[in-house]
Write a protein that binds this DNA or RNA. Sequence first.
DNA 1: CGTATGGTTGAGGTAATTCAACCTGTGTGG
DNA 2: CCACACAGGTTGAATTACCTCAACCATACG
Lengths: 228, 228
Amino acid sequence: MTLACESCPVRERAVCAALTLEERAELARIGRARSYARGEMVFAAGDDLDASATLTAGLLKIGHVDADGNERILGLIHPAGFVGEMFAPIANHDVVALTDSRLCLFPRREYEAAIARFPALALALLRRSSGDLHDARAQIALDSRRSAGAKLASLLLALARSASHSPCHLAESFDLPLTRGEMAGVLGMTIETVSRQLGRLEKDGLIARVGARGIRLTDATRLEERAG
Amino acid sequence: MTLACESCPVRERAVCAALTLEERAELARIGRARSYARGEMVFAAGDDLDASATLTAGLLKIGHVDADGNERILGLIHPAGFVGEMFAPIANHDVVALTDSRLCLFPRREYEAAIARFPALALALLRRSSGDLHDARAQIALDSRRSAGAKLASLLLALARSASHSPCHLAESFDLPLTRGEMAGVLGMTIETVSRQLGRLEKDGLIARVGARGIRLTDATRLEERAG
DNA sequence: CGTATGGTTGAGGTAATTCAACCTGTGTGG
DNA sequence: CCACACAGGTTGAATTACCTCAACCATACG
């Protein structure tokens, strides 16, 4: 399916926003949109990386399974995020859709040509890459010596933030887009610990669980305190 | 002190290598070299970020001290590395020299102008940022569910690699550029655990310690096994 | 010589992991 | 329509790797 940038939900925030209308139209000509179902793999580690993409809707994970078969989630990609390593010929990590998602895919060679032709595009990618680098480092800082409960509280707050439409506001009620196992993968701990800490947060009255996936923030202030 | 790119030890690998000779000469005109002693702060978190830099010699850490006063090291910067967030007006993290170091400093505004004028520079920065992002994610993967011994083994191997001059070869004997506390900060554990695990690696015959800082790899193969 | 700073070692406590059982909803095939 | 399997989730008991607290050692330095 060809692109309809005018109606793109992330047209103001994705890297293409740095381009003029004519440049963007030219980029649109080489791209195509595609939908992915929850759980579907976008790129697999070891694949030839012959495309890059912008996420227009949904949520992706960048994952890495170690020797023991445990998956660690190295990062989440939110709408307007960019997927694909520009300078690695093959993918280092798996990229999987956590929810039904929609991507705008660009063939590698033609995208590289576009970068060479439109300096603003390289700059926008640099800006985004810097932001992702910052996020990754924040994640390292978060991993440090914080308790499992604090880490989980941070994650819930981050998910509440991304579930609300405005980035600075928290959704007070939302569905977790991640399974317990995926939450464990993000936070570097076990499924059981996630489950127990979730129970503890509920018992302490900071959240309420509705079903397995629903979360309602009953005391966001104390949740933020707990996150440290 | 003004720049002498011809004799720069990283002239082939730093971002400036992407420029033509004339472009590089122009960049050299706005930059200046400066030395930092071990322990000296390059940027402090919260500072106005009015410069960016290329590391020409030495080793830097990007650090973050949390509420309890514990420092977590978010990344190391090796020679040819780039320092300074292009899109953040103030520094997010501390940058400190771990060994005596030498930087090539560029005033922020003029460097931004150079990026705008030389598209190759933006591209080179994007390449480096992507690489740093990859390293940061590798660090997250490393943090996961590995034992303290495995993490320490990985760190020793990484340091042995960076101590040798060729990047794919291990120095079998070298001095640690980090204190125990800094190693603990990199790996997200305590000083005592670092010390004990180091003792264990020695007892098991994988390394020999000479003084507090000297390391000799007596069985690199098994050290790599231990690193996972 | 006294004081930092960095490093090692020991004893004891604890949070998180491991292993295991069990629950719940969903989909599939007889 | 029921039976069954299966994936995701919860809960319990036992273990353990790491942390905390504390004492002590070595080296450098004014």
